[in-house]
Amino acid sequence: MDFLYGLFIAPFADFAFMQRALFGSLMLSLGACPVGVFLMLRRMSLSGDAMAHAILPGAAAGFLLYGLEILPMTIGGLIAGIIVALGAGAVSRFTIQREDASMAAFYLISLAVGVLMVSIRGSSVDLMHVLFGTVLALNNEALILIGGIVVVTLVSLGIFWRALVAECLDPLFLRSVSRMGSPVHFIFLGLVVLNLVGGFQALGTLLSVGLMMLPAAAARFWSVRVEPMCVLAVLIGFASCIAGLLLSYHASLPSGPAIILSAGVVYFCSILFGTRGVLRARIVHHRHRTA
């Protein structure tokens, strides 16, 4: 019993920084995972990655001006992300270019600007910090910020749920009955940026997209409906955060990669054992019904 307590409970009970890390990462999962489900269903999984890179110059500008402060870096990242999301979205909506190409163009430009800005002043240690973050150093400011982002995300998803589903499922239909099509797309991109920015203090700009996409991708193997898929993605996100933090504590590993790798393990298990996974498709289909 003591062994189990030491393994699972003690790290969180004994250390305030672990409690903050747990609290912050769980909140992040609550907002980011449902957003990730829609990102995946809209076939924009890699756009999330692109957006994560796009945030860099904004965060770097905040860093250059104010040093390693959470608020300026977050606001900077938010601005850069929104410019790229709106720019790429607008190009794809109003020209013949598809969103994947315009997104690639915008994020690469943004990333280059970001790297340039970090290298003007910072050392490589600073760059590492922006790129990889650390969930173990979440201060009150960061937790409040993440909390705000989660509330905004969940409320927006609640309000725009039906429009978002319609826009994913049958965009032409939505256009024929309502003018919500374009606005809901941009609102959604805004939520993506918001959650990536929320995650980058904890996980870094590169890995914050991991907590968004991996649980969503894993949940896809278990459900044929959106609502359960979102709930499941959040639960997988929770589990990954707890497992990752414990792993990082006991094995002295960096926390961000440990969380994302935990989600990766769930993903691989889901590919194999999910109700819509590989094994089930191979084995169960030897039998079939008469009609």
Partner: peptide
């Protein structure tokens, strides 16, 4: 030519309810 995404996880009732 519907722009319907048939791979979207929805049931018949979800589609019709739109």
């Amino acid at each position: 030519q519907s722009e319907l995404d048939r791979s979207f996880p929805a049931r018949v009732v979800d589609l019709v309810s739109l």
